[in-house]
């Protein structure tokens, strides 16, 4: 059975605000987010939206992000 997807969530992650703490990756039940391979301009590891189609827009990642780096519209 194909995994349910939702297109109502416009999840955006600002990689320059991200410090790669991974609290969002840990809290996401749908594995929408994952660590990026490189670093951002500050030299910090960061997270990317790897599967935006799976995002339900629950906002748990937004709640846990210490850097206001994630936005769901």
């Amino acid at each position: 059975m194909p995994e349910k997807t939702s297109h109502r969530s416009g999840i955006k992650l600002d990689k320059e605000r991200c410090k790669g703490c991974m609290l969002c990756v840990e809290v996401c039940q749908r594995k929408v987010l994952e660590p990026a391979k490189g670093v951002n301009k500050k030299g910090m590891g960061y997270v990317v939206v790897a599967a935006a189609g799976k995002c339900s827009g629950c906002g748990l990642c937004v709640m846990m992000c210490p850097d206001c780096g994630i936005e769901i519209s």
């Binding site: 320059e16 605000r17 410090k19 790669g20 703490c21 991974m22 609290l23 500050k42 910090m44 709640m63 846990m64 992000c65 210490p66 850097d67 206001c68």
Partner: peptide
């Protein structure tokens, strides 16, 4: 919150409480 990125370490709780 202003747009300025915080100086806090990765995973610091201050950012969450500020927000």
């Amino acid at each position: 919150m202003k747009q300025a990125p915080t100086h806090y370490c990765p995973g610091c709780g201050h950012g969450i409480v500020h927000r």
